[in-house]
Amino acid sequence: MDITLEVNGETRHLSIDPRVTLLDALRERLGITGPKKGCDRGQCGACTVHVDGRPVLACLTLAATVREPVRTVEGLAADGRPHPVQQAFAEQDALQCGFCTSGQVMSAVAAVEQEVADVREFMSGNLCRCAAYPNIVAAVEQARSTKESADARV
């Protein structure tokens, strides 16, 4: 079937089988490989992307059912500058192998935007076998204070 996806601000047309997940559409058809396939079962979070501004698992989403805009880790940077969460992940060393990182970053962006109270709980849908967890929490906290000081300036 023919579908249209809006990914990172661009409209993309695809002709796909209804079986294709959003994750496989992004990775195998659109060359957007930031989102990773760690399990393909909703059990790891490596495929986390935003649909309509909210983190979802691309591996359990059928591409043909997506109507709202999709944002992946590739779409976070603005004007060539990394998103404050990306910057914080790099500075806090919130990664090792980096395979879970795209998904972690997408969840972390939501954690900062939603001003969540319990960061560790909120970030628990993103497994990290390298176990960068403490640094991931530190990165969220850093990004949050960056945001707060930016908000305060406005």
């Binding site: 909703g42 979070g45 986390t48 983190p55 698992l57 359990l60 989403t61 969840s107 939501a110 909120f122």
Partner: peptide, 9 residues
């Protein structure tokens, strides 16, 4: 239940 991503879906 589940995770924040799953709860959004």
């Amino acid at each position: 239940s589940a995770s924040q991503q799953l709860r959004n879906m």
